[in-house]
Simulated scan of single mutants.
Amino acid sequence: MLILGEEVSTLKVVDSSLRLIVIPLSIASLWLTLTNHQENEIYGRLEFSNLKGLKFLVSITAISGGYALIAFVSSWVKRLMNKAWIFFVCDQVVAYLMVACVGSLGEILYLAYNGNQKVTWSEACSSYGKFCGRLNLILVVHFIALICFFVLSLISAFRVFTRFDPPLSSKEVEVETT
């Protein structure tokens, strides 16, 4: 593929496309989370700020979306592309943070649907159905973004580790020492 007189690999196109996909997914996840609230006459108002796990999700989603934008722009700057290890480390960190967010959101959803009888928490989704429905949607959107970052972390790992020679086997070491 030729763009502006420069050959662009398929891997770079996939990388850039995934980073572009993450940006609207992050925006959608942020919007859904920040606007998720529901009133109940008996129990009061429930919104994202009532749950620390959702505050964590908002923070990490904003970081991942911002990083995806910065990484997309900087991946097309030739000098920065030579620093593949920076992308590798950042992609790994963001992917792991997003895994933590999915776990946190999964726990919130589990407790919202099932409660915890040992600590006398009842389920909340019968009273806050709209809120729980949007949490399910947020989980799906965030999970798709996580899959994108998982693939991005594989691509960046491939880019970093193909720059090095494979380690020597024990037979090759013996030959070199003699």
Rank of each mutant, 00 (worst) to 15 (best):
T162V: 08
S16C: 13
L4S: 15
G115V: 12
V77C: 14
T35N: 14
K83H: 04
L97P: 07
Q117F: 10
S169Y: 11
L18K: 00
A112C: 04
I42R: 13
H37T: 13
E6P: 07
S153E: 00
V73L: 15
A71S: 02
E123R: 15
F158N: 09
Y128N: 09
G44V: 06
L135T: 01
I60Y: 10
D91Q: 01
S75F: 01
I144Y: 06
Y110W: 13
C101K: 00
A84D: 03
V151S: 08
L51Y: 08
W31Y: 15
E7S: 14
S16G: 15
E6S: 13
I155K: 01
G5A: 09
R79S: 14
G44L: 02
G106L: 01
S127C: 09
R134M: 06
W31C: 14
L80V: 01
S74H: 05
F48Y: 14
L2R: 12
L109A: 06
I21P: 08
I144M: 12
Y96G: 05
T120W: 10
L146K: 02
E176R: 13
G44Y: 07
K12T: 03
F164G: 00
F150P: 03
W121R: 06
A95H: 06
Q117I: 04
F56M: 04
A145L: 08
E41H: 14
V8R: 14
I70F: 15
D15H: 11
Y43W: 15
V22M: 12
V102L: 01
H37S: 15
G129T: 10
S127T: 13
A71K: 01
A84N: 04
E123L: 11
G5F: 11
V173P: 05
F164C: 03
F143Q: 05
V141K: 02
V99N: 04
F149V: 01
T10R: 03
H142R: 08
T33A: 03
K171D: 14
